[in-house]
Structures are given as structure tokens and as C-alpha cells.
Amino acid sequence: MANKLKVTLVKSPIGNVPKNRKTVEALGLHKMHQTVELPDNAAVRGMVRHVAHLVKVEEA
């Protein structure tokens, strides 16, 4: 199991509920196709699950 996740914003959060927009921002994603590496833990996986329709996730 990898200890990092690569999260990429592939769909705009504009038009989504404010909770989803705040979650995307909390993940450190601000622009389309921006990728961030985050620790692979339960908190991050839960945030990614809530915005799964907006992001692409890979194990790094």
C-alpha cells in the first residue's frame, strides 16, 4: 500500500454545493488539472470520496 495519493482536479466545482467546493479547496486544489500529493490516511480518503465525481486519484 502506498503512503501517498496523487489527487487531480478533472472537473470544475463551480455549480456544486458549497460543501463540495470547500472540500476541493481543503484538498489543496485550486485550478483545473492541478495535482497534489497527499498522505494516504482515512481523513484524506474520506474527503476524496465526497468529491470523487470531480477528482482523479492515483496511488503514488
Rank of each mutant, 00 (worst) to 15 (best):
I14P: 04
L27Y: 00
V17C: 15
N20H: 14
E37D: 07
T8H: 13
V57S: 02
K19T: 15
H33L: 12
E37I: 09
K56E: 09
I14V: 13
K11P: 03
K56D: 05
N41A: 12
N20Q: 15
H33P: 04
G15T: 09
H33I: 15
E25N: 13
K19R: 10
H30D: 12
H30Y: 08
K11S: 06
N20R: 09
V51L: 02
E25D: 14
H53P: 05
H50Q: 15
A60N: 14
A26Q: 08
P39F: 08
Q34F: 04
V57Y: 00
V48H: 01
H53F: 10
N16G: 13
K6Q: 12
V51R: 03
G46I: 05
V36I: 05
A43P: 04
P13M: 06
A60V: 15
L5A: 06
V10F: 14
E59L: 13
V7D: 02
K22N: 10
V48E: 00
H30Q: 11
N3C: 14
M47A: 06
V7S: 00
H53L: 14
T35I: 03
H33Q: 08
R21I: 14
A26G: 14
V44G: 02
A42F: 15
L54M: 02
V7Q: 00
R49M: 11
K22M: 13
K22D: 08
V17M: 15
A52S: 11
V48Q: 02
A52N: 11
L38E: 04
L38N: 03
V44C: 03
L9Q: 01
L38G: 00
